[in-house]
């Protein structure tokens, strides 16, 4: 994905057991903060058709 031009950090992977609720909360907090810092992803947003 990064090779194609997605910003580094936009895509993240984690392995969390269903018993690791604390880790789940930590990861969600971290990922949310990291993605908010990157800002909205406009790359895959479709634009409205431009009408004259």
């Amino acid at each position: 994905m990064e090779h194609m031009g997605i910003e580094p950090g936009r895509l993240q992977f984690s392995w969390i057991s269903s018993a690791e609720s604390t880790k789940f909360v930590e990861v969600v907090t971290q990922v949310t903060a990291a993605i908010k810092a990157l800002g909205p992803n406009s790359n895959f947003a479709k634009k409205m058709a431009e009408v004259a």
């Binding site: 090779h3 031009g5 790359n43």
Partner: peptide, 17 residues
């Protein structure tokens, strides 16, 4: 050719593709 793309910034890569 893979290396030449890897040398670009994310914005340049997006534009390239």
């Amino acid at each position: 050719d893979v290396r030449s793309i890897a040398a670009m910034t994310p914005e340049q890569r997006w534009k390239y593709f």
